[in-house]
Amino acid sequence: MFGRRVPVKYVLLFSVLLALVCAAIAVYFAQGHNWIAAAILGVLAVWFAVDAVRAWSWKKK
């Protein structure tokens, strides 16, 4: 965006944080038997975790 690239360390950090937050909220909703919200947040947690792994592989190069 705007001709600049976001540094990889920020992508990694925010992806890990968002994955943890989404996973924690998904567990909270699962304990309350709200399965649709838990599933959506679980998918988002996996999405951000995969993004963090991809950012980690960029950082290694």
Rank of each mutant, 00 (worst) to 15 (best):
45 A>R: 09
51 D>E: 13
50 V>R: 06
15 S>K: 02
43 V>Y: 06
32 G>H: 13
37 A>H: 03
59 K>E: 03
44 L>F: 09
31 Q>M: 15
19 A>L: 03
40 I>W: 15
27 V>K: 06
3 G>V: 15
15 S>F: 02
18 L>P: 01
22 C>T: 07
46 V>T: 07
33 H>F: 13
15 S>A: 14
35 W>E: 08
3 G>E: 12
5 R>H: 13
60 K>A: 11
44 L>I: 03
7 P>M: 01
7 P>L: 01
6 V>Y: 01
44 L>Q: 04
54 R>P: 00
29 F>A: 10
22 C>A: 08
25 I>E: 03
25 I>W: 07
37 A>K: 04
5 R>F: 10
53 V>L: 15
53 V>D: 05
15 S>V: 05
39 A>C: 15
36 I>E: 06
7 P>C: 00
5 R>I: 10
38 A>T: 01
23 A>Y: 11
43 V>I: 15
12 L>T: 00
14 F>R: 06
22 C>Y: 11
13 L>H: 12
41 L>K: 04
49 A>T: 08
51 D>S: 10
43 V>D: 08
59 K>H: 07
1 M>Q: 09
42 G>E: 08
21 V>G: 02
13 L>G: 02
27 V>E: 05
4 R>P: 04
33 H>P: 01
48 F>P: 01
43 V>P: 07
12 L>F: 04
31 Q>A: 10
18 L>I: 09
45 A>G: 09
15 S>M: 03
55 A>V: 02
28 Y>F: 09
60 K>Q: 10
19 A>T: 05
8 V>M: 03
55 A>F: 01
18 L>S: 15
51 D>W: 12
13 L>I: 04
7 P>N: 01
49 A>V: 05
25 I>T: 08
61 K>A: 06
21 V>P: 01
48 F>W: 09
5 R>C: 02
25 I>P: 00
20 L>V: 13
40 I>Y: 08
17 L>R: 13
43 V>F: 12
14 F>S: 02
